[in-house]
Simulated assay, not measured.
Amino acid sequence: MSTNTHPSLSAVSTSNAPAAVGPYNQAIQVGDLLFCSGSLGLDPSTGKLVEGGVEAQARQALKNLKVIIEAGGSELGKVVKTTVFLHSMDDFKPVNAIYAEFFGNHKPARSAVQVARLPLDALFEIEAIVSLA
């Protein structure tokens, strides 16, 4: 079976963020919205998880998300909704502090969930929906 991408959708990709670790795009733009795939704390130059635990991974994942959003033609202040995936809810407080520092006064809608396992055994992942308007 072969499915082609509909012409109303545009893939977003940047070499300033890690390549997708599977058969998906870094983000997809449709209309005035940008849907960003989950970002892990991967170093874009090595493709490996950064060292330093959940805080280092969260910082790097947020940096990766930012460059993907910018490559898609938007900015952090236009993030509408994020979903945060944590390996352990015990990391909620330190991750929350990094998240708040990253977004500043902008407070997008958000969900945060603990999951059994993340790709590459990561400790943190974040996805986002972003306005282009």
Rank of each mutant, 00 (worst) to 15 (best):
S2N: 11
T3W: 08
T3I: 12
H6K: 07
P7N: 02
P7L: 06
P7M: 07
S10D: 15
S10K: 02
A11I: 15
S13T: 11
T14L: 02
N16C: 08
A17N: 03
P18Q: 00
A20H: 07
A20S: 14
A20W: 07
V21T: 15
V21A: 10
N25T: 12
Q26L: 01
I28T: 12
D32K: 08
D32H: 07
L33D: 09
L33C: 09
L34E: 01
C36M: 08
S37A: 14
S37I: 12
G38T: 12
S39Y: 11
L40S: 10
L40H: 08
G41R: 05
D43T: 13
T46F: 03
G47M: 05
G47I: 03
G47V: 03
G47N: 04
L49Q: 04
E51W: 09
G53E: 12
A56L: 13
A58G: 04
R59A: 13
R59H: 04
Q60N: 05
K63M: 03
N64K: 00
N64Q: 02
N64I: 01
L65P: 01
L65V: 02
V67A: 02
I68T: 00
I69T: 04
I69Y: 02
E70M: 01
G72E: 00
E75L: 07
L76R: 09
L76C: 09
G77R: 08
V80M: 13
K81V: 14
T83W: 11
V84W: 08
F85K: 03
S88W: 14
N96D: 15
N96Q: 10
A100F: 09
N105K: 11
A112G: 09
V113M: 13
V115R: 01
A116E: 15
L118Y: 15
L118G: 07
L118I: 15
D121I: 14
L123T: 06
F124W: 07
E125S: 08
E127P: 06
A128C: 05
V130L: 01
V130G: 02
S131G: 09
L132Q: 01
A133H: 10
